[in-house]
Design a protein around this nucleic acid. Structure first.
Lengths: 97, 97
DNA sequence: CCCTCATTTAGCGTTCTTGCTAATTAACTC
DNA sequence: GAGTTAATTAGCAAGAACGCTAAATGAGGG
């Protein structure tokens, strides 16, 4: 990690904005953040679309950096990377303040 | 406009997030905001992609509410609707504060 | 009017996204 | 190991997004 924080944010902004573009992913993100943590099954059951579809949304969110995931036995526990989102929101708030 | 401000924001969030998903549109948005106002030609010349492509990005931004447009003779003048974006950013900042 | 300049609309091919079902991997339990 | 549960990966069809070029619109100037 030799790059400055701001530059990194710019580079990841693309993935983050793309991840936020889908309503289901925003809902998942808010849901996980509200609950603190959640495993894939809890999330999948809560949403209308099929489990694999939810699974892909989760993968997109993880790739973007908005979600962290860790394996606990055969379940995977997701939590939000609130700092990343807060950073991006703060950056854009500055642009438009 | 009988709806409360918050509800409206939720309804338009979809279009706004979708509009922000494309890097060219984010760049256009920042560019217009930085300049204050800009007409389509100024914007199109500044970007690599073709004028019609830029024109469609502009239309997307206008539809989302992020850009305002007004005709001045044969040019169209764009400006940012900073309030809309600020409102959405503030809303999401609250969610993740 | 005709010409030009500013911009959009039409139309098309390519690529990306999203949804599904079916098959697969991985871990725990007996 | 056989079975069960958790979750992903594979593969495909439908639709949307994005880029382009060419054609159309619309306003202003001679």
């Amino acid at each position: 990690m030799t790059k400055p924080k701001g530059l990194e944010a710019l580079e990841t902004a693309d993935a983050v904005f793309a991840a936020l573009a889908h309503p289901a992913r925003r809902q998942i993100l808010l849901s996980v953040h509200y609950r603190g943590t959640a495993n894939a099954g809890e999330i999948a059951r809560r949403f209308e679309c099929s489990w694999p579809t939810t699974s892909r949304h989760l993968a997109t969110l993880v790739t973007s950096g908005l979600l962290n995931v860790s394996r606990q036995g055969r379940t995977r526990v997701y939590s939000t990377n609130a700092d990343l989102l807060r950073g991006l929101l703060a950056q854009w708030s500055e642009y438009f303040e």
